[in-house]
């Protein structure tokens, strides 16, 4: 398997258009929907993916989250999650 390139901090991130990301009231969670399947996201994954809107860069997302959760040390975790989400085929970068 090819080793994925590290993510440049100024790349714009978006959820892959064939997936659907939405809030599910009954599950009290964000989910990703795809053909015949669904992933229920935990709170932090949901907060990150909610910001992968095709407009914000990785840095924008981190900054935004830092603003919302000022006490958290989240830089590394967010980058790591975005890498994993890209490998999973959930998001793509430009």
């Amino acid at each position: 398997m090819p080793v994925p390139m590290p993510l440049p901090p100024d790349s714009v991130v978006e959820i892959v258009p064939t997936l659907r990301f939405q809030w599910e009231e009954a599950q009290q969670a964000y989910v990703l929907l795809y053909p015949e399947g669904m992933v229920k996201l935990n709170e932090s994954a949901g907060e990150i993916l909610r910001r992968c809107d095709g407009k914000r860069t990785v840095n924008d997302i981190i900054e935004d989250l830092q603003h919302q959760f000022p006490d958290a040390e989240l830089d590394g975790d967010v980058r790591e999650f975005i890498e994993v989400a890209r490998e999973q085929g959930w998001i793509r970068t430009r």
Binding site: E24, E25, A26, Q27, V31, L33, E36, G37, M38
Partner: peptide
């Protein structure tokens, strides 16, 4: 309304 999300 019951929470179904996947519809086949």
């Amino acid at each position: 309304a019951l929470g179904a999300a996947q519809l086949g």
